[in-house]
Write a protein that binds this DNA or RNA. Structure first.
Length: 293
DNA sequence: AAAAATCCCAACCGCTATAAC
DNA sequence: CGTTATAGCGGTTGGGATTTT
């Protein structure tokens, strides 16, 4: 906001005390960085004054923590990171800073933005409340398995992998076991009381249709023999240098053929399937899939 | 090519918790 | 106790960038 100089005083006097807002300039960044390098962080209001910055302490703190701090990691979130966010969010909800503590170099702001722009967008497209159990099911049934496979690919293709993560051993401790929707040997009786509602037909259709390999891959779903948490496996994998975006939108499309069956195949248990899908959703999913092709 | 719509993210805001006085 | 300063959190927004029409 421009400061209106009603008294026609020297504008330079006013500008000296006026607080700046909006995007940071390179000069301000340099001032802040140099000051913190010399004096350390903390006491942000004082720091702002002493550093000669016409910013609030709060603004300085935010700029430092979210952008200037040396260990801040930039670029797209890796599949591992995305998977971890999904897992931790399902555990803790919108506790962004808590989630961020488990993703070194990532800020709560970044994670929050990721959730809002990518995850919630998907929920909108599917016409599902992003905080609903139904949406959580979609995340569990489709995105997380696909992300897991991406993780797998990343870890197997990475020449710098320090410890090969056996993804089949990854556990999502806070989550119910993934539904065995594509495990050809499973049936609905495997669904335990710990699990939320999954349509039995998920297992049925996998008996009858061609599911993409990434969906049928047994180790994608085999969470039961868990020795290693997802988080542990994340730390064991050297982050891919690739910053290619594995955004959920693209990933979700990959599971379309499975859903396709659900449209053309025989859903027999409507009262259960309604818990997860309705035809509108399915058609939307299908449309998205076609768009993605 | 240009206008409109949508996406994305840095930065801001309001609020709460905690500590020091 | 109340007050003030500081830190931190989560929600929201402004506007540039990108995509779509």
């Amino acid at each position: 906001m421009a400061n209106i100089n009603k008294n026609n005083m020297s504008s330079t006097m006013e500008e000296d005390t006026e607080l700046r807002r909006g995007p940071w300039t390179l000069e301000e960044d340099t001032l802040l960085t140099h000051y913190i390098a010399r004096h350390g962080e903390g006491r942000w209001n004082m720091l702002a004054k002493c550093a000669g910055l016409k910013r609030t302490g709060k603004s300085c703190r935010l700029r430092w923590l979210n952008y200037l701090k040396p260990d801040i990691k930039r670029g797209n979130l890796t599949p591992q990171e995305q998977l971890l966010i999904l897992e931790l969010h399902s555990k803790w909800g919108n506790r962004w800073s808590k989630i961020a503590q488990h993703l070194p170099g990532r800020t709560d702001n970044e994670i929050k933005n990721y959730w809002r722009t990518r995850v919630q967008k998907q929920a909108r497209h599917l016409n599902i409340e992003s905080n609903s159990k139904r949406f959580l099911d979609v995340v569990r049934c489709f995105w997380m398995p696909i992300l897991l496979q991406k993780v797998e690919q990343t870890s197997s293709s990475s020449t710098q992998t320090s410890v090969q993560c056996q993804l089949s051993d990854c556990a999502v401790p806070s989550l119910p076991t993934f539904p065995p929707l594509a495990n050809k040997t499973t049936n609905s009786s495997i669904i335990t009381s710990q699990q939320t509602i999954y349509p039995p037909d998920f297992t049925n259709f996998s008996d009858q249709t061609d599911i993409p390999q990434h969906i049928t891959s047994p180790n994608v779903y085999n969470y039961s023999n868990s020795h290693q948490t997802l988080e542990q496996s994340y730390y064991n994998i050297e982050n891919s240098s690739s910053t290619a975006g594995y955004d959920m939108e693209g990933l979700s499309f990959a599971s379309m053929s499975a859903l396709e069956y659900s449209i053309e195949g025989n859903w027999t248990n409507n009262e259960v399937t309604d818990n997860l899908w309705n035809m509108d959703d399915i058609w939307q999913f299908r449309e998205l899939g076609e768009m993605g092709n």
